[in-house]
Amino acid sequence: MHISSEQFLPPSYFEYARGNGPGPRLIITGAIHGNETCGTEAITRVLADLDSGALTLRSGRVTFVPITNPLAYARRTRNGDRNLNRNLFPTAHPQNFEDHVANWLCPLLARHDVLLDLHSFNAPGEPFVMVGPRNNTGPLEPFQHEQAERALARHLGVQRFVDGWLRTYGDGVRRRLDDAQQIETVLRYGIGTTEYMRSTGGYALTLECGQHQDPQAPEVAYRAILNTLAFLGMTDGPPPAPVDPHAIEALSMVAVVDKISAGDRFSRPWRSFDVVAKGERIGKRADGTPVLAGFDGRMLFPDSAAVAGGEWYYLTRTNPEF
């Protein structure tokens, strides 16, 4: 679909501000992917709480974007023309609907300090939060808000934490390619909402609230919004208690395995966070060569429909230092 700038209608967003006290500038997004509606439902519920007076903003500014990708949302599909949560940059010559959304969304993100991005996932499983890198000044994802970001993550109400996305994705890109300019182009594809937010000097969390149709997913999202507002001191009442340290399951993405041929097959229908033992058979190549796990860990983002030359699955390791 080609939509001109004149035809593009920006998504609706709702701003609440309180001038009586200083506070952070928070933005909360839902439906980056159109079939992930738990965030939309939770945001709508919080907006009703604010409008009725059941919830009062005491400091700072919060912006809600219930439906960030209206085309995908209207279709109830993950994407409209492309994945909005990849290659998220402004562009002078938008070629598709998501390019127009990016041109609108990126400046909005840059006006804020903190992002909570609400998602859901396809297979059954428990909620988890994706966090950013350690503080660093490296070229891939320089960052200086590790402590604040991870402190917020511990107060969202979930127990599973995953880091290492862009680093591990980047390792796979460099392994596949040998042209520096092409590497830089493909690395941009790994940039989504949270990565873009960090690039503007803020910090951000992606909360995966549960399976798309799980009736508890909107509840997870709603609780996370309330917890975020309270933890940041933007609403009345004490901050929420952090997750029990003994209950935390922290994982780091450490390896990505590519699908070499269309004939490569998994040994079974893997799901994210399935336990994988060193030497366990993950699948086999088209020529019959077995694909074995190189270490004890957990599966993440297995994609049986991956194209040849693309990411087939990721492996994580326990991270005892989260």
Rank of each mutant, 00 (worst) to 15 (best):
V275G: 01
V275K: 14
A286R: 09
D274S: 10
S267F: 04
F266N: 06
A262Q: 08
R265W: 00
R281P: 06
K259R: 15
L251I: 05
R281M: 15
L251S: 07
W270R: 05
S261K: 12
R265D: 03
W270V: 02
S267R: 05
A277L: 11
V276D: 10
E280Y: 04
V275F: 12
K278V: 11
R281I: 12
A286L: 06
K278F: 01
E280T: 02
E280S: 07
A250L: 10
F273E: 02
K278A: 15
F266R: 05
G279C: 06
V257P: 00
A286S: 15
L251F: 15
V256P: 01
D258S: 12
A277R: 15
V257S: 10
R285A: 06
I260V: 12
D274V: 05
A262C: 01
L251R: 13
V257A: 12
P269N: 09
V276I: 15
I248P: 08
E249Q: 14
F266M: 08
G283E: 03
S267E: 11
R285Q: 12
V276N: 10
D264K: 01
V256C: 14
I260D: 09
W270F: 13
V276M: 11
F266I: 06
A286N: 09
R271H: 13
E280I: 05
F273Q: 01
F273G: 00
V254C: 15
D264V: 02
M253P: 02
M253S: 11
A255M: 05
I248G: 04
D264S: 01
S272I: 09
A286F: 03
A286W: 04
D264N: 03
A250P: 13
D258N: 07
G263P: 09
W270L: 04
V257D: 06
A286I: 00
S252A: 15
S252N: 09
G263I: 00
F266V: 04
S261H: 15
S261M: 06
K278S: 13
A250Y: 12
G283I: 03
V257T: 14
E249G: 03
P269K: 08
A250N: 12
F266L: 08
K284G: 07
S267H: 13
S272K: 05
E280H: 07
A286H: 09
R281Q: 15
V275P: 01
R268N: 00
G283C: 05
V256R: 10
S272H: 09
V276K: 11
K259Q: 11
V257R: 11
E280D: 07
R281Y: 04
K259D: 08
K278E: 14
K284H: 14
F266Q: 03
E249D: 13
I260E: 14
A277V: 02
I260A: 13
L251N: 10
V257Y: 10
G263D: 10
I282Y: 01
K278H: 09
S272T: 14
G283R: 00
D274W: 13
R265I: 02
